[in-house]
């Protein structure tokens, strides 16, 4: 006798909850709620300083870096460009689609909404084409908000979301942030060949 499939109810509920939010109050409001929630989560973590960029990278490797704690270990691709192998929402998506076959309806509209320019996505340097699913609206601002709690050698850091890849392999590029950081789109494209998420870290003088 097999145990059958055991679902993670938190995953299932979260995905359905997003759909409920979209249905009840519209995609823009749902987008705001998810982003606000991500920012609020970041408010709970203490500030941390790394003496050098190398120390910062070591903390990622040790999974003691706050950003690594929420998304797993990203790898430095050179010139402050990072790639993240696995989407932190991968298990949720897998769990859900294994049972229900596909993601809830309305997610595509939500993703379009997230990619629209807005003051909050500007503030956290996310979206603008880099969103490939509603989960990006949680993950990307949360990472940027966590970065606001981190300093390197006493200097603030800023994260720019350059691109992201969906489970189906579709790549999304944030032209605005690619242009602002001066990173080549080819580089982002290449990083996304092997990673699900690509971002840039800027140390602010």
């Amino acid at each position: 006798m097999t145990e059958g499939k055991i679902l993670d109810i938190a995953h299932i509920s979260f995905l359905d909850m997003i759909k409920v939010m979209i249905t009840l109050s519209g995609a823009p409001s749902a987008k705001g709620t998810l982003i606000r929630n991500a920012i609020k989560t970041a408010e709970k973590i203490p500030k941390v300083n790394y003496n050098s960029f190398d120390d910062y990278l070591t903390a990622i490797e040790n999974a003691t870096n706050p950003i690594a704690m929420i998304e797993g270990k990203s790898s430095h691709q050179g010139d402050f460009v990072f790639g993240l192998k696995a989407c932190p929402f991968g298990p949720s998506i897998k769990n859900y689609t294994e049972v229900f076959g596909k993601l809830p309806e309305g997610f595509a509209d939500f993703t379009v909404e997230f990619n629209k320019p807005s003051p909050v996505t500007d503030q956290y340097r996310v979206g603008e084409g880099a969103g490939v699913s509603p989960f990006c609206a949680v993950h990307q601002p949360m990472r940027s908000a966590f970065a606001d709690k981190i300093t390197i050698d006493g200097k603030k850091i800023k994260i720019y979301q350059l691109g992201c890849k969906s489970g189906a392999g579709k790549k999304g590029f944030a032209e605005k942030w690619i242009s602002e950081t001066g990173v080549s789109k080819d580089v982002v494209d290449r990083v996304l060949d092997d990673h699900m998420c690509c971002y840039y870290l800027k140390i602010v003088d």
């Binding site: 249905t23 009840l24 109050s25 519209g26 823009p28 409001s29 749902a30 705001g32 709620t33 606000r36």
Partner: peptide
């Protein structure tokens, strides 16, 4: 603003 967004969105829906 945050609360009104939900209310407004709900009314629109």
């Amino acid at each position: 603003g945050a609360i009104a967004s939900s209310g407004f969105g709900a009314a629109e829906s």
